[in-house]
């Protein structure tokens, strides 16, 4: 079942096109990553999904209907830039957001207290937000996003600004939500989180989609890197387009192999073993998400993801 779909969505601010002909679908129970550098159009796209801003053209379907506040009861949202009412207590804040999402005060309080307990903040429930540390306030805001037990959880750069402990907590929450049947869409430019969490992902560059698919499809989009150690020169082997020596010792040489079009690493290994071509090491390395991102986005965007070397 499709929870979220965008078709040919365009958003312009004056002369600037923030999102250009964007289309994708997210199915129920998926964790969907929204990857892009700064200014790629991630936040604008998510705001359109939430009906905070309207697209210039195109169609958006959320939970089977047009975007709108009637979906609020089924959606949880954590914005990129966080803030809370400083003079309200932690539990008052969560109840307020619960009520805005059509919950009763009692249900919002019960669920809010459970979440605060889950986040080890139950003793801070009645403290004003201004008394909380930044990390605590971030957990309160996450609780406010989760209070309605949403069917669709939208997180905009959820890991930015979190310490490693809270990053781990958030990853756990995302996995728990998926196990509970919820769909999670999150934007990030940190590849490690996407790599660990996403079932499918989409890469954006300058407002345009440059990739959509599963992690395997993403990895397959770039050829695997093959290295081997042999006594002989592998250049003439079938399926090898080029071989570059990178070092070696005791009569063995290390080679970095570029396969010919249509050739596979498995085929090359089979040929070597059947024909007595001596090998001491045969190593296939899939392209990392980071490499894929740089391949797709770096060239268009000029921007680099977090952790880029």
């Amino acid at each position: 079942m499709t929870v979220l779909s965008l078709e040919h969505v365009v958003k312009r601010f004056g002369d600037f096109t923030a999102v250009d002909d964007l289309g994708f679908t997210v199915k129920q129970g998926e964790i969907f990553g929204f990857l892009g550098g700064n200014g790629a159009g991630k936040t604008t796209s998510l705001r359109m999904v939430l009906d905070i801003i309207r697209p210039t053209s195109g169609t958006i379907t959320v939970l089977g209907g047009a975007p709108g506040r009637r979906n609020a009861a089924s959606i949880g949202f954590l914005p990129e830039e966080r803030g809370l009412y400083r003079e309200m207590t932690a539990i008052e804040t969560i109840i307020y957001f619960g009520q805005l999402k059509r919950m009763s005060q009692r249900d919002a309080r019960t669920r809010g207290l459970n979440l605060l307990q889950r986040f080890e903040l139950d003793t801070w429930a009645n403290k004003k937000v201004e008394k909380l540390s930044k990390g605590m306030a971030q957990k309160v805001q996450l609780a406010a996003a989760l209070v309605n037990n949403p069917r669709l959880l939208i997180l905009d750069e959820p890991f930015s600004g979190l310490d490693p402990v809270n990053q781990g907590l958030l990853e756990d929450v995302i996995v728990e939500m998926k196990k509970g049947g919820a769909t999670v869409v999150f934007s990030t430019h940190t590849m490690q989180h996407a790599e660990r969490l996403c079932d499918r992902l989409l890469m954006l560059a300058k407002g345009r989609k440059v990739f959509e698919g599963t992690q395997d499809e993403a990895h397959a989009a770039l050829p695997a890197r093959l290295t081997l150690s042999s006594r002989g020169d592998p250049s003439a082997l079938p399926g090898v387009a080029a071989a570059k020596a990178t070092g070696g010792e005791d009569g063995w040489k290390d080679w970095e192999i570029t396969l010919a079009a249509g050739a596979t690493a498995a085929g090359l290994l089979q040929y070597c073993t059947e024909n007595g071509f001596a090998l001491r090491r045969f190593d296939i390395q899939r392209a990392s998400l980071h490499d894929v991102f740089l391949h797709h986005v770096g060239a268009r965007d000029g921007g680099k993801p977090e952790g880029a070397k």
């Binding site: 939430l50 506040r69 966080r82």
Partner: peptide
């Protein structure tokens, strides 16, 4: 305050 501490986006997602 709502504008400066970026509260509005959370609220506008609900109402």
């Amino acid at each position: 305050e709502e504008r400066s501490n970026k509260l509005l986006e959370s609220i506008l997602a609900c109402i």
